[in-house]
Write a protein that binds this DNA or RNA. Sequence first.
DNA 1: GTCATTTGACCAAG
DNA 2: CTTGGTCAAATGAC
Length: 322
Amino acid sequence: MDEALNLIHVGCERARDLELSLPTMASQPDLLSSSCQDIMDIFSAAKQRIDCLFADSLQWHPHVQQDPLCTSLGPGISIPPSNRLGGTRTERRDEGTGDVAMGGDIHDIPAADVSQGGEPSTLSRRRNNRRGIPRSSDEERRTFLVSASRIGNPEIPPDDGYTWRKYGQKEILGSRFPRGYFRCTHQKLYQCPAKKLVQRLDHDPSTFEVTYRHHHTCHMSSTAPSAVHPPSLQHLITSQDTTTHVLTAAPTQASITSAAGPSSNAWMPTAFDIGGMNVGGDIAGPSTIGDPELNYGEGHSGGLDPGFFSYSEEHWKGEDQK
DNA sequence: GTCATTTGACCAAG
DNA sequence: CTTGGTCAAATGAC
């Protein structure tokens, strides 16, 4: 891991140098291009090392990188579909579902499809409705820890570029904070199945556990309003049977919908998404580090905040020591 | 009027 | 029976 970290260090330094040199290099596209290539190569090498470590620690097979189910999060971060926090019955049950087809195997039943029968009363109709998800489903889940404390209000988790509509909130056993349930705002319009569950951590209220289910399909539509401005990667933690990806992102205004109202829970996030597994960052702005690996998702360019790494490294080390 | 949030009830799985 | 996930009526904001 040290080797990967060193590479990331070097890459960050190069990126910073590039940033400082931008005014002068702007007129030298060749130099600019080669500098970008250098940085890409460095991060790419770091990614490979981290991937290898990941594969080893999780006993993944080498094919994991080619596995379309293992979606790249950027340099060094790949998430298997079966990745999730352990502990709950649901999560345990989902173990070993890494081969589940992603995206195509949607188990959620759209509301429009749920109603059956003729003209039942409200009560009977609701009784006939299939409530709750089949927890034994093999649906894909991806869990991340999202720190909201780096930029902006730590009470408000970062934006992920998607717009979410809250459809439920529930007290979870053993948790001080309720879990919020969100679905893509465009679920109906574009039959977008993406959902996310957001829960604040007991021991670290500034961190949110965000679980994504299914992928966004709404942004595939040319008319879909969803714009992806994924967050920058913060770091990841691997522990025992749990691999949790920790990210941080700058909060933005764009897609915060559920927290808008005065009656909303201040902490409850609406958007920070890797629902489409699009992770990168809008912090870096135009100076995107253009590794092909960083082109997360469907045509959304990603960027990494040069400053993010220095932060994440400290964080990483701290977590590694645990 | 439209859209989003809140919240109690419902449902399936364990 | 317990629990997590979802539905949908009620409510509020714009």
